[in-house]
Amino acid sequence: MSERITAEDVTHVAGLARLELSDDELERFTVQLAAVLDHAADVEALDTEGVAPTAHPLPLANVLRDDVARPGLERAEVLAAAPAVEADRFRVPPVLGPPA
């Protein structure tokens, strides 16, 4: 955990997060993320051997309801919020572009 995050790491993570960073942002975020991760590193001091992880504060599991059809959102209302629509569907630009 002690390896510091680099500008290359930040560029890689931005790609995973579907974000594009300017040179200025890249520089700033690299410094800022490193500071936060350094602070987070103090959890290293804690012995967590054999401790189970907690993903959620409630002991609820497999919350079920009766399998009965019920009305959903109005299609027209949902489509009205979309940036582009065609034939009652969400319209997007081509999924396959020219080779990068």
């Binding site: 955990m1 991760l37 987070a40 959890v43 290293e44 804690l46 967590t48 401790v51 189970a52 992880p53 907690t54 993903a55």
Partner: peptide, 11 residues
């Protein structure tokens, strides 16, 4: 990071 943090949450 994430795994360790979840264990700290348990603590």
């Amino acid at each position: 990071y994430y795994g360790k943090a979840q264990k700290v949450r348990t603590l």
